[in-house]
Amino acid sequence: MKYVSLTDLALIVAVSIIPLPFALLSETYWLYVMVLSLIYAILACSWDLMRGYTGILNCGPAAFFGIGGYFSALSAMHLGLSPYLSLFIGSIAALIVGLAIGLPCIRIRGPYLCTVTIGFSEIARLIVLNEDYITLGPYGLPVPPFPGIPKIGIIFHLFNYYLTFVGFIVCFLFLRRITQSQVGFILKAIREEEDAVKTLGLNVTKYKLFTFAVSCFFTGLAGAFYGRYVLLLSPEILSTDNSFLIITMAIVGGTGTLTGPVIGGFVLTILNEYLRDYIYQRFVIYGAVIVVVMMFAPGGLMGLLKGEQRPTMTFPWKIRGSKKEVNNEPSNC
């Protein structure tokens, strides 16, 4: 058994060559979609470490995404840091905020944690919206691109894609290292039965904070890349809509796999572009997608690919009288 499986390798190779056909065809629009997909793949992947492994339901990943983006851009603009260094400033800022939110959240689980994280992401959005002397509020914050490359054209897109790809590789391999290692088993054990882990002499708080730190770091990194690529940060990226987009990606791809959320990130970003005409109905559609995935394929796309058996369907009108197994497991979402 090695840290990286064949599926992971296939995925990395696929992700590394996917923009090339579009570059050859000079399809800048599709190149743009690909870079966005890759950024969302990092987001969904690091969200999956929290939910799919440690079992922490963080419903406000977009807040850390925005914090990463804004801190990175502002630190480069006001402190004159190099844009590459500022990527880390953004991630570290997200990590610190993640720990600050994680610490009081350790004792709460499930829907309570969900409420707290949604509340926090809304607070973060309102701060960005209202502290306009530094964030420029609703006008959005213009961000300069990485120096030395043209602002438009295929080179710009490809450069950003492969720079983000470096971030993606680091994120994916680090998360894979964690999940395949001894720590990974502890995280999964915390997801399954927290009390039992405590009686084994393991400090659950420490491992939960570790998860928060790692996940928020990479979420912030994705935000920093996003700012440098889209060249404009707006409070919209901290919205709950964006959080649930990330969550939908991870669930559709299959939580607890890391590869699934990456695929989900690509599939849903592309779908998102097709649904641009239905901007208001979009999230109704995503809600329906989550319900359908939970009912018919709880393992998501990865579960389907692995040929995971889907649970016997229990329609509401069938529950009475049918031999329904008593299920004490926590729901998947």
Partner: peptide, 27 residues
């Protein structure tokens, strides 16, 4: 028990709890 982990992985978590190793050395 940890229902979705295998028997071996279940016991591994116990072993790690007893080993008192640091998080980094357990990566």
């Amino acid at each position: 028990i940890f229902p979705k982990l295998t028997v071996k992985e279940n016991t591994l978590v116990g072993l790690l709890g007893g080993s008192k190793a640091s998080t980094w050395s357990m990566l």
